[in-house]
Design a protein around this nucleic acid. Structure first.
Lengths: 352, 352
DNA sequence: CTGAAAGCGCTAACAG
DNA sequence: CTGTTAGCGCTTTCAG
């Protein structure tokens, strides 16, 4: 490996001069500069990024600490970061091995977390005696770290409201909710839905909440194979789709008279739609479905899924932007918001 | 930031002793060692990975240089790497910004490339005057770098043969091929298919090759919007699905009497199936479909897709393993192979 | 405009 | 067993 020292020797100058020439900083004789640059090229010189980082105390690298990469949503978030960070000369890498200890050994300037739950875990596990500039993508869920980590929020509460409004405007009254959690879990989509359907469903409300989880379904054997979930530190979470499928069965069994359904995310919607059709329902004639996410798998179904987009790409972009502001010591807002929008598909029936 | 020097001062020893204690190397007085470790914890010491890397001349990091992350196949490859590398104390990160120059500024020990085409581009663009241990996942395509980069091959030629055999065993004779390339492009699936159907189709062979590309379809306006493809350095390649959809239309227009179709990958199969059903065909009654990949989106369609799995996870694992052998200076095979297998789904009709 | 020198935080002989 | 010393490759004063 050729170093600046080698070039200096060849050029008959000192390393400082070589550094200044190559970095375009400080005074260097024009001719010498040219010669140095020429030599560097000729000798195939490549700056050692590690040495630079050690001296500068910054790496120009940011890590996105995210598992569940099979979920296109996260990829879209990453894509947004990547583009924005690039503009500022930063690189963003994905690190999917969720070993929090390992994060301390990473050569990066900052850390971006994909949701508030992970942020909470992170703070609990390593937050005490370790700190690196951190930004978190959030979804409006109630968490306690609110004041510790700057966030970029794509509000799932609002998203649920949007979905509800859209369905109501299309004449739907009885709207069920499909979730991967128990009825009692504090989740913002559930809050939004509950407050809006309370009057409609009254005491029956819980029936219209399809909570696909061990707690929610008790000993239902069909849910038991989702138990593997907690088992491995890193796993392909392929269960949203399956949970959606199971949701369809439960929907039938409960003989729900809902004309529409909102799902936790698009993946669950896809699973639900596949199974509900097999069970003899037609989408959207018998049941309308609205997902939340806005990922491109929406297109996979026979009818393109109607979804509330959480705008993952913009969220990612804003995360990167905020991170870079922090690293540059610039002013930044503690909380920023990402606008949402309905992406109309073909899974909602117009009742009016 | 507290350093080993600080700890040394506190403990009244030299940095070497601290280093030896913390690294568990060389002789250190037992009591002093304990005290040092205690102090380190108490003072919240965190080793600086950059300094360690500079001194050791290795980072214990590997980069997987891969765009098209929205394609679950690549994610599965990554997942395999991740797990294997972890066992050996290595981290694998994804870098999706395909700026080859940037690769030189990365603080990693090795580079894994996702396919032979990218490897070719890499060698052409930066291979001359830069070199870092590199491993490439390949698919049996004819490329010229064979001697420069160790590869882990999941052979798509074999996969195509497997698919053909499977279809033949199920009584299919006329088997079409759906590809994202022109008929004349050198691609290994096409080779395999051509040699097996030549006798069946004779001069008509080209009709049964559905090549969804600008060159293949000439001025067909429906293919024109795929032209954006070359435009950006990083892009979400969402076009396989759409190309599959277009493939269905062309299939109808050509009034093909094929009873089965093999597709370049699973994504294309999903697109094809969605559209061919809209055009009034039933899958698998009117047309059987076999994909190549074995990704989990297979499940999204009403009938689970039958596919030849290229075993992405194992391929990724082997890539990581080979890389680590190289880095450790151990012996390794230049070419390794990944076993393939048919994953039966519901998209192939038994004709016999 | 240039070069010597100190330093980034850690490793690894090697003499004691 | 311990401490000194000389790096790793680059940056950045600061005196000349």
């Amino acid at each position: 490996m050729v170093t600046r020292k080698d070039i200096a020797q060849m050029a008959g100058v000192s390393v400082s001069v070589v550094s200044r020439a190559l970095n375009n900083s400080g005074y260097v004789n024009k001719d010498k500069k040219k010669e140095i640059i020429r030599l560097a090229k000729e000798m195939g010189y490549q700056a050692n990024p590690i040495a630079i980082s050690l001296a500068n105390k910054r790496t120009k690298q940011i890590v996105f600490y995210c598992k569940e990469l099979e979920n296109a949503f996260n990829i879209m978030v990453y894509e947004g970061m990547l583009e924005t960070a690039k503009k500022y000369g930063y690189m963003v890498m994905i690190q999917a091995d969720l070993d929090f200890e390992k994060i301390k050994t990473m050569m990066v300037d900052g850390l971006i977390l994909p949701n508030e739950f992970l942020a909470q875990m992170y703070l609990d596990q390593v937050g005490r005696n370790y700190s690196i500039p951190t930004v978190c993508a959030t979804y409006g869920n109630p968490v306690s770290f609110s004041r510790c980590i700057p966030v970029v929020e794509s509000n799932a509460w609002e998203a649920t409201n949007l979905a509800m409004n859209y369905l109501k405007n299309n004449g739907h009254e009885k709207i069920a909710l499909l979730m991967p959690y128990d009825y009692n879990v504090r989740e913002v989509r559930a809050y939004a839905w509950k407050s809006l359907v309370q009057y409609t469903f009254g005491d029956n409300i819980e029936k219209y909440y399809l909570g696909i989880s061990k707690e929610g379904l008790g000993n239902d054997p069909r849910v038991m194979h989702f138990l593997h979930e907690q088992s491995s530190n890193y796993r392909i979470d392929d269960s949203f789709f399956e949970k959606g499928e199971l949701g369809a069965h439960i929907f039938c069994e409960r003989k729900l008279d809902a004309t529409a359904l909102i799902t936790f995310n698009d993946e669950m919607a896809l699973g639900f739609i596949k199974s509900i059709k097999k069970l003899g329902y037609s989408v959207p004639n018998d049941i309308s479905v609205v997902g939340i996410d806005g990922i491109f798998s929406r297109r996979y179904t026979d009818q393109i899924l109607t979804s509330v987009s959480l705008n993952p790409k913009e969220q990612g972009a804003k995360c990167a932007e905020k991170m870079i502001k922090i690293l540059n010591g610039e002013k930044y807002k503690y909380v920023s918001h990402v606008p949402l929008k309905i992406i109309e598909g073909e899974t909602v029936k117009k009742m009016n």
